[in-house]
Design a protein around this nucleic acid. Structure first.
Lengths: 339, 339
DNA sequence: TAAGTTGTCGAAAACGTTTTAGATTTATTT
DNA sequence: AAATAAATCTAAAACGTTTTCGACAACTTA
């Protein structure tokens, strides 16, 4: 059961290791006869090149790193699946790490991945990442990194995102089109670009329709949890009875708002329309079923890998690497929580 | 920005590579002075050993493979998180692959991981895996593998599981204790051991309480989907009006049954108690909230890595590897869908 | 026949580390 | 002072691959 190596093949055939290697890779300075002999023996011994040796020699590991803020999360799990799926097709394997939305972990894990000689990194920024030196240095050195979902405009590199502004605009516009006049917004933690952009989209839609923007009906859900939503529901019921729609940053919080309002006997969607964001599994389970914006996690993962792959190839071929930003389309999924 | 290597350190210090290597590892045949010089230079140059070279030389990659049936799934995502978390603590990285419940993929991906020189594999069997030769050969050769969650009794190796029989027994017993007399069971696909065990637990509880087992109220949910559950709800409503409780193989299907029955104006839990299995996020969102059995995914992932780690160490130390089966405790989570 | 061409091969270096076995120097013992 | 022991170092092989460069033979060409 010992491992088959080039050396073994060379010895049994009475030729050199170099020739065996070249025969297997169809170099044209080895005769057809030798090639045939080598190939058939390699096949019958089920020879598999040693990946570590290849990596060491070729300075590439055919492995990429994927840093996820939170694995146990429908959207991010979809991303993992998408990345793995796309990577497999190109012969790449994926090492997944979780930053837990912590800047320190994020930094450490990037280092870990670099130490492991990954060929590139896919990264979604932790919410509290504010200092980008660790990234910009890396990118300047030419190391392939692509940012997905939670990005920042302050870093110059390739990115894969959805258009949060547009998506939020469309969601809000839909609420307006269906007769809602007083639309509250539940936003996430302050820093991430996604929070900001969805908020801007919401505001733009109001403006476009000459609806006055009222800062007192914009709520922050610090943990984006169900409970956050429930609390906000009570607040709305108590102090903002005229609210007839809620557009939330994410499905879970939207569900919290919905559950909270239902407990207060508010009729959904007759009295208040609820719009979520992401299209998680749970949107099909709430009652009424939650209207939402589909955020294509699997596709985003696939696309992110593709962009990274191109950069890895370009860098190897010493072609100039062009940074690009890919914007994935979202779409409204209208169910029963909106009029 | 060129990589710092032992060679570079050796050259600037005017000593040999061997000494540098040994100095950094505190071998006792290098003088304290040399050690100090080497260490301080290494530190100031921020020397990081090349992982590939180390792996090649030491014949260990400090990387393990994790094969998951389905990543986008609350329970399995928790497992991934648990494994990564435990692995990190021991300096191991995790390559995740998805089998998609396909036997062929499972085989291919094991090979992929072996080609990549992973030090061990964590595996949950695909539903349609029936032939275990690819595994038993590997295990016999001494390669560390541990099976988690979806296991088989036909393979002799370490395993990390919950006690499905006991968990199902307790769930059923709870239904009986709360006055249910006619308890239906929704089982999963026929093959997996988990399906069989939960079914046995259900039957045992009936027997223990002198309740007649009625095969006509055992239903199969082939895809374990929400829709499967809804269909079964209709069937129950139509032909088995005397059913006053349903114990389902998994939360999503339980939810399907619940949604289906609610649509037929059956009162939950007054007329029918519903018990799920797994304790996914969604159980807190259904209305009424779903009672279920907590299946500790994160812990299972952690534990699975620990067992694998021990095997890797033992094997390296040439200690005899003892296979063991770790059984993780489950517990009933009673919410509002049961009386 | 001398020079050039072509086809086929292998030695050796390289990737960066670890470790064995031996070499060299210094210190200790008789 | 010679023999032995201890302390410190290094050469070299090893892990398994890839690729450059040159060697050699056989065949063409002038």
């Amino acid at each position: 059961m010992a491992k088959i190596t080039l050396k073994k093949i060379a010895e049994t055939l009475g030729i050199s290791v170099a020739t065996v290697s070249k025969a297997l890779k169809d170099y044209d300075d080895v005769s057809p006869e030798t090639k045939a002999k080598v190939k058939s023996l390699a096949e019958s011994l089920n020879y598999k090149p040693n990946f570590l040796a290849q990596s060491l020699r070729n300075q590439e590991s055919k492995t990429i790193g994927l840093i996820i803020p939170e694995i146990v999360h429908h959207f991010f799990a979809s991303i993992i699946a998408g990345v793995i799926n796309a990577a497999k097709k190109k012969g790449y394997l994926v090492i997944t790490l979780q930053s837990g939305e912590s800047y320190d972990f994020e930094k450490k894990q990037i280092e870990l991945l670099l130490d492991k000689n990954v060929d590139g990194i896919l990264l979604s920024l932790a919410d509290n990442t504010v200092d980008y030196m660790h990234l910009s240095n890396l990118i300047e050195s030419g190391f392939p990194i692509v940012l997905y979902d939670k990005i920042t405009k302050s870093i110059h590199c390739s990115k894969v995102v959805i258009n949060d502004q547009k998506a939020a605009f469309n969601a809000t516009q839909y609420l307006i089109d269906t007769g809602c006049k007083k639309i509250a917004h539940v936003r996430g933690p302050l820093k991430p670009q996604t929070t900001i952009d969805r908020f801007i989209g919401y505001k733009n839609a109001l403006k476009e329709n000459d609806i006055e923007f009222d800062t007192s009906i914009v709520f922050e859900a610090p943990h984006l949890s169900l409970e956050d939503g429930q609390k906000i529901a009570k607040e709305i019921y108590k102090n903002h009875k005229d609210v007839d729609a809620v557009f939330a940053f994410t499905d879970l919080t939207a569900t919290g708002v919905m559950v909270g309002l239902k407990e207060l006997n508010v009729k959904i969607p007759e009295e208040v329309s609820i719009m979520g964001f992401s299209n998680w599994l749970l949107t099909r389970i709430t009652s009424p079923k939650l209207s939402t914006v589909n955020q294509p996690g699997f596709k985003m993962g696939k696309q992110a890998f593709k962009v990274l792959y191109k950069e890895i190839k370009d860098r190897k071929a010493k072609t100039k690497v062009e940074f690009k930003t890919v914007e994935l389309p979202t779409k409204l999924v209208i169910r029963d929580s909106t009029r």
